[in-house]
Amino acid sequence: MTSLPTRGVIALIPDACTSCMVCVQECPTWCITIDSHVEQVSEEGARRPRSVSVLDRFTIDFGLCMYCGICVDACPFDALEWRPQHDYPADTRAGLVQGTDQLAAWLR
């Protein structure tokens, strides 16, 4: 995707995201936010339950994003991807903030 001459939008693969916060901390414009919580998962045969982060909310504010691609490069789990879609206008400022559902819908 990065070889495209244009940068359309950044999509999220929610199942690949571990809520590690790397993208949030690397983003120069502070336009990514994440809410997550930790759950204990018991696995068959494991002595103790395992702690896993569960993603509650992931947003990108495309009113702030400058399409630098640092988040895509920085994600250790390849959970962010460039997609070619470019038509996502909004008639309010808040409408430019896209959440998990829309970010994932751009994968299709």
Binding site: C20, M21, V24, W30, S36, S53
Partner: peptide, 23 residues
């Protein structure tokens, strides 16, 4: 004066010293 969204650390990455936002 703007809250940094990166200030909330993931559970596994708690740091001893609070990290400064980039910039």
């Amino acid at each position: 004066s703007t809250p940094w969204p990166g200030a909330a650390e993931a559970q596994e990455r708690k740091r001893r010293r609070p990290q400064l936002p980039p910039g």
